[in-house]
Design a protein around this nucleic acid. Structure first.
Lengths: 197, 197, 197, 197
DNA sequence: TATGAATGAGGGTTCATTCAT
DNA sequence: CATGAATGAACCCTCATTCAT
């Protein structure tokens, strides 16, 4: 209101940044309020607790990823194109707002216990795509969980490394220039290849 | 001493378990002391602060992994056997003491900024093995960082999934029976295959 | 607010009393809060730390004394009247609120290292008056520091003895009846006389 | 023992220094033990508590001063020579071991409540000398308490200023070269003069 | 006597949260 | 909806002191 930006939006933005910079537990309501230029008390007009705020931020975007990935997959004919599109989406999202993606990524262990299996879960989106490819004979039969772990793990690790590169000054400086999205095709292809074993 | 177990050992054990169960920030010194059957004050005869305790637990085992992996690699002739031996080591360690491995895995983002790049760093152990295989022509030339990310990511994700299986009642229930170690060969092979692309 | 008295005022009052009764280090924030009928947490809405509270209490009144003494001196024509007015001010202040004066007096060693030399410093107020009297030939030339020490020392010791009389049941019971102020003239005259040597 | 210095002596020395440097409350048994190169536990073979140590250090030297001053006074014929000898003793002691004297001086408010009136109390040594001089008609009749306060105050303030000069870098730098003792005669004379009023 | 690990009360401070305005 | 003082539980840590060796 003060500056045309909605209060709740400012809170989200500030919380996201601080959570990623310092960790959820290490960030106090005071800090968020201050960063969002809101009074401490006003925070509670928007979120009933710090936990609710952290969870809302996580679950919203976690599902968003899951849902979008589920939407993207059927729009592509085969495993290679599905993977490319799915991974490009994730990487583009990272390039556009790495703080948001980092949060979802880093906070996942804290919240995964609360996620219902079915709903927009990115992991299961990949799981389904792989299982279906196996059913269609696109890739050899193998343990789906292991296969999914390897694929998702590879993708996550790319993001992981990218986060480190953002936060410290780690290797993989390449996407400083190009963005992570530039890597989506080779990564997707590597994943497909991996499942051909 | 009280019961034949050294105090410091009891503290480590208790801290490790609580850190994994609840997170480092979410675990208080009081809780650790209680779980270790030590007074709060006694904690500080062994560690100068909670942070030092968390860091000691992390860095010790993190380097241990890195060092051991560096030791294992040269004892094997080619990439497939290297990978198998390295991954078997990690998975066996997980089966033997999943709490310890989970801690190192889960806390890594908190501490990675403090780790010196080269020393016993598991990531760089894989990095070196892959780079060397590339030099020797065992696998095609490609971006080493991307390659390492995919491989390490796959392995980590296996552990990640295994942790979730331990903590909640998630998929990949298979190694409930066999242990993660049973998967080391297929995972190693998939990793090799992936790099052949 | 709770009872019409401002919180910060209640904190100051309580802290002053406890600091004098027990010493700064020996007084806990908990005690002050309780005496001021405020929660522990609320203390920190008014002072960022216990040290800041102690320092604020000291420096405020220390400068106040210095400033007032500097104001009083020029309003009087010669050394005897200057001394009488200055000492009367100090003694009156003691009679009116001996706890406050005692605090400034007792805590001075703890804080003197932080005081800037010139500003409202009671010692230098006397220093200036004596130096000026020497310049004007009112008193013989002598070491100004020694002279000031003797004068200020005499005054302080009166207060010191008075504090002991308040706290224990020591000699100099006289001003139990009359107040310290009754002694300001004889003390001032003795000081003048002392400088005539 | 370890180095030929008796343990208890090392403890006293270390405690004295730390008490003056930091204050009694601000100095921990741990610190003293460390500075004295003694184990924490061993401290309690020599003193039953930190308070006993602080008190012992204070009362021993406080009485020592009082006793010595009482011994010095009668050895001199009149007030001027008495004052000179007494003040010289105090100032010499300061020059020889300013830490010790500072401790007695600074800690006096903390302990004065425990001192029995009669025994070796420096204040009362001066009190007696002045009262006697008054009886003998050496100085005019006046309030003995006030007179004593002014005299003792002047002396104490000299020491006070000297302590500040040692600890920070305050005025009265003169006795950096000569020692406080060089001032004993002028101070004594000023005191006599002051009582002549 | 000397040692230093162990104790647990208590220290200063921060926190999420409430509520009168 | 917004404010920010107030709350009091909880946090990390330090302390004087004890005691088995």
């Amino acid at each position: 209101m003060r500056d045309g930006t909605k209060t709740k939006e400012r809170i989200k933005k500030a919380a996201l940044r601080l959570f990623v910079e310092q960790g959820v537990a290490e960030t106090s309501i005071r800090e968020i309020a201050k960063a969002a230029k809101v009074s401490q008390g006003a925070m509670y007009n928007h979120y009933t607790s710090k936990d609710e705020l952290a969870w809302d931020l996580f679950s919203t975007h976690f599902s968003e990823f899951g849902l979008e990935l589920r939407r993207i997959a059927p729009a592509n004919p085969d495993l290679p194109t599905k993977f490319r599109a799915m991974i490009r989406y994730v990487f583009e999202r990272f390039d556009a707002d790495w703080v948001l993606v980092s949060y979802v990524f880093l906070a996942r262990h804290q919240f995964l216990g609360r996620i219902t299996r079915r709903q927009g879960n990115p992991y299961s989106a990949f799981h389904n795509v792989i299982a279906e490819a196996m059913r269609r004979g696109e890739i050899p039969r193998q343990d789906v969980e292991v296969a999914t772990s390897l694929v998702v793990g590879g993708i996550i690790q790319m993001i992981d490394t990218a986060i480190l590169a953002k936060r410290y000054d780690y290797p993989l400086r390449r996407f400083r220039k190009q963005g992570l999205e530039a890597l989506s095709e080779p990564v997707a292809d590597a994943c497909v290849h991996l499942l051909m074993a």
